[in-house]
């Protein structure tokens, strides 16, 4: 998978979090996987179709998700992820992927984003792509976000 397809998603996480006042976003470890094993509580998956086709999964702990939702709601305390909180995490994944799709469109690739799905659970085994996925840990001041990118190009 060419790096030019991956970078827009990482840049997009940084710019979306910056919109919510989060300025510490660092790229951490990178790995290649086929089956994705998630120990985090929450995974939001968004699909892309068009000249780039695939799924992008954003996994995080419940604490991190609560902090992201709080940042999205201008610092309002979030003590549990209720329906509105879950909806906000879906919206976060949608914003990141939508923003990345604009960056991809700017480089001449026609892409559209599909509705997000939020999956809660422990010890979850995923396959999000028929090809290998690239896993990148994004270290932020709100906690770690594990990004798995599976694109069939």
């Amino acid at each position: 998978m060419d790096v030019k397809y991956i970078l827009p998603f990482l840049e997009s996480i940084k710019s979306v979090l910056e919109q919510f006042g989060v300025d510490q976003v660092k790229r951490g470890q990178l790995a290649k996987n086929h089956i994705m094993h998630v120990n985090n509580d929450i995974t939001a998956v968004v699909g892309v179709v068009g000249q780039v086709r695939g799924n992008i999964a954003y996994s995080m702990s419940e604490d991190t998700a609560q902090r992201i939702v709080s940042a999205m709601m201008m610092g309002m305390p979030v003590i549990e992820l209720d329906e509105m909180g879950r909806s906000a995490i879906g919206e976060f994944a949608n914003m990141v992927t939508g923003n990345a799709s604009i960056l991809l469109s700017n480089s001449g690739l026609e892409v559209d984003v599909t509705p997000p799905s939020i999956i809660f659970g422990r010890n979850v085994f995923f396959i999000i792509s028929t090809v290998d996925t690239i896993k990148i840990d994004m270290e932020t001041s709100l906690g770690r976000i594990e990004v798995n990118i599976g694109l069939e190009i």
Binding site: G90, P116, S117, I118, I119, F120, G121, R122, N123, F125
Partner: peptide
């Protein structure tokens, strides 16, 4: 996985 819930 364990106790998996899907929310759309």
């Amino acid at each position: 996985g364990q106790d998996v819930i899907i929310s759309i």
